[in-house]
Design a protein around this nucleic acid. Structure first.
Lengths: 195, 195
DNA sequence: TAATGATGTTAGTTACCGCTAACACACATC
DNA sequence: GATGTGTGTTAGCGGTAACTAACATCATTA
């Protein structure tokens, strides 16, 4: 079962994920996957018994849910502008890693609803962390006292919007780079726009 | 070609759109559509020659691109808080109308990229309108002078995030109601969070 | 050298699906 | 009562795709 050289199993998974991201699980055929990973159809079936098995193995390999809480807590310095930039960047980086799973989850949400759970969990965890952070900042008098949970939700929704828009439509909705977007949004989030 | 009573043509389109939203164009069969609209398969083919024809007719019937510019311009009173709430609500309402097309566009973005164009156009137009509005507000000294285009982009991304999250994942990401979300976000957008 | 294991090739099975054709029925209008 | 229109039913064609089975090849390794 070992793959010498480049690793046949991995090549198959990589190709499968790439194709399924682009066209959806149902539209990708074993033939496509075989051609893209430069093996015969039979080899695909020998490694992963069914088409769905290929997807499950790919999800297994590529889904990633790190300790966002630790990352945030270890780098926070209780300066609103600085910390929000850090959190926004961490969230976007995390989503970027899971982009492949996200795109497949979108297309297969009717048939494989558990997939989005993997990603939703990250967002939910970060929402908790961010809410706690806001509460701490409010206690320290470094931030206006408002509904921390709603505030955190709004903050994350903005970056979810950025990520989702980029992942699904590339630059068709949003053309700003990640850095530009974070800069604008964190600044606005801190200072507001009213005079 | 007239449909007496409930309108066979319409029943087919409604069922088709509903099914395709949920499962994607490719996964829905004519058999599914026929069963859901309570006609025979042949009747579907007699009304719309091909499966793609069904989708095209449904898109035709359900896509909607109104004069957002006029709506905004006629109701703006140059009070930042008031106007942003109006614009946010208008945008979300518009997206809600086009939800069906949006969901199909998501699933068929590889095969039918023109679909998302219908919706992207709305967002682009509103971005233009909103940018102009910000510039006017800046001239009148009612708003901080920043990059109006980026600011508008950020604002719309937030609501795109809200809509997209709700349309794709229901309350799995975001649980706030539309009114709550608009209230929190517009307030933050205007006032900021720093002390 | 012999055995092993990963892969390729070819052929075929099964099932589904888009779509067509032909015929039948029911109803409404002329 | 004839005609037409919308529909149902049944059968089938052509294509495709998941998956299986059997056999061949080649390289590594015992």
């Amino acid at each position: 079962m070992d793959d010498h050289e480049t690793g046949t199993s991995d090549r198959i998974l990589d190709a499968a994920l790439r194709l399924m991201q682009a066209k959806g699980f149902k539209s990708v055929t074993i033939k496509d996957i075989a051609a893209a990973s430069d093996v015969s159809e039979m080899t695909v079936f020998r490694h992963y018994k069914t088409k769905k098995g290929v997807l499950e193995a790919a999800v297994q390999k590529y889904s990633y849910t790190p300790g966002l809480k630790i990352i945030v807590e270890q780098n926070v310095v209780y300066d609103l502008n600085h910390d929000l930039k850090l959190i926004a960047a961490s969230y976007l980086d995390l989503m970027e890693v899971n982009r492949g799973i996200f795109l497949i989850a979108v297309q297969e949400r009717a048939t494989m609803p558990e997939l989005i759970g993997l990603i939703a969990d990250n967002t939910k965890r970060l929402h908790g962390v961010l809410t706690d952070y806001f509460l701490t900042m409010q206690e320290r008098g470094k931030m206006a006292v408002t509904d921390a949970s709603k505030q955190a939700m709004m903050f994350l929704t903005m970056y979810y919007g950025y990520f989702s828009s980029r992942a699904l439509w590339d630059t068709q909705f949003i053309s700003d780079t990640q850095e530009e977007f974070i800069a604008t949004s964190v600044s606005t989030f801190c200072e507001g726009l009213a005079t």
